Structures are given as structure tokens and as C-alpha cells.
Simulated assay, not measured.
Amino acid sequence: MIRKYNDNEIPTLVNIWEQSSRIAHPFLTEEFTLMVKQAMKETYLPNSNTWVYVEANNILGFISMIENEIGGLFVSPKHHAKGIGTALVNHMKQFHKNLEVEVFYQNKIGKPFYEKYGFKVFKEYIMESTNQKVLRMKTN
């Protein structure tokens, strides 16, 4: 089941984000990861349109949207490659004809996922705070 998240679920979402992020972004510094973790709790989740994927009363993944942009899509590592990310993106397609996302070039999980889904790169830049290449992608 996919539903909107509740504020009291933020700790669960941050935990899923941290587990997934450490696997997808091993190239990021610990300092940057801790900074984003705090921002997830205080800024990103409270200010985005976030939906959760729930199975047997457990949140297995979530997607956070800012208008038509996927601000974050994270699935518990134990549940990767089971269609949860695809289900969440498909759910958002009901509300937005075209979706956009930014993904680190070195992200060996997210980048192939978005490419498989049909997202195409339309811009690249170096994120100053990480010195990492970021791809801006969108659906057609």
C-alpha cells in the first residue's frame, strides 16, 4: 500500500534513508552524510510531499516530491529490487506527467534505476559541497 507519511514516521524514514544512502553513496564524506541526515529530519521531509510504501504495517520505502521533482527515493536495502521503487515512481506519475530527479553520477543503484525507468540526462554539474558530478534527469 502507498500512502502519505505521518510526521511521527520521520525517524523511520531517516533510518531507511541512512541505510540506503550509505550503500548508494559510499563516495560521500561522513561529515556531508551527517549534515544531510539532520536536514532530512528538520527540512527535507517536513517540506516535501512524501509518500510511503507499507507492507504488513512496515514502511519499506518512500518517495519525497517537490512539485514534479523526486527529491528522494529510498527503499530499505533488504527490499531492493522487489518493485517498490518502481511502484512509488508509478504512483507519482498519476500526479505529474513529467518527472525530474537529480542523482549522483557515481550512484550505482539510483542512476541505473532511473535509466531503466526511462529518465534521460539533460544537465550535468559538479555539486560544490561534495565535489561530485550530479546528473539532472527527466522523463519524456
Rank of each mutant, 00 (worst) to 15 (best):
Q106E: 14
T86F: 10
L60K: 15
Y114H: 05
K93V: 10
M127F: 14
Q94T: 08
L88Y: 05
N90Y: 00
L73F: 04
S76M: 12
I70K: 03
H91M: 04
G72Y: 05
I84E: 01
I70V: 15
P77L: 11
N107Q: 07
H96Q: 09
F104C: 08
G61V: 04
N49K: 09
E67N: 13
F119K: 01
N90I: 00
V75I: 14
I126W: 06
V121F: 05
H96F: 11
Q94W: 00
G72R: 00
I109F: 11
A56T: 10
E55C: 13
G83V: 07
Y125F: 15
P77E: 10
G71C: 05
I70Q: 00
E124Q: 13
N90A: 03
N49C: 08
M92N: 06
V54P: 05
K78S: 14
H96P: 00
Y114K: 03
A81D: 15
S76R: 12
W51Y: 15
I70S: 00
G83M: 09
I84L: 00
M65K: 02
E55F: 14
N107E: 07
T86W: 07
H80P: 05
E124A: 06
E102C: 15
I126L: 09
F95H: 13
Q94F: 07
A87S: 15
M92F: 07
S48M: 11
K108G: 05
Q106R: 12
G85C: 04
N107T: 07
V101I: 12
Y117W: 08
K111G: 03
N49F: 02
T50Y: 08
Q106C: 02
K120N: 14
I70H: 01
E67K: 13
G110Q: 03
N68E: 13
M92C: 15
T86Y: 12
K93L: 15
E124G: 04
I63K: 01
K82M: 13
K97Y: 04
M127V: 02
V89W: 03
G85E: 00
K123E: 12
K123F: 07
Y105D: 12
N58H: 14
F104D: 09
L73Y: 03
H91D: 04
H91G: 05
G83F: 10
E55L: 15
M65E: 02
V103C: 00
P112N: 06
W51D: 09
N57Y: 12
I84V: 00
V103S: 03
N68D: 13
A56I: 08
N49I: 04
I84R: 03
G61A: 05
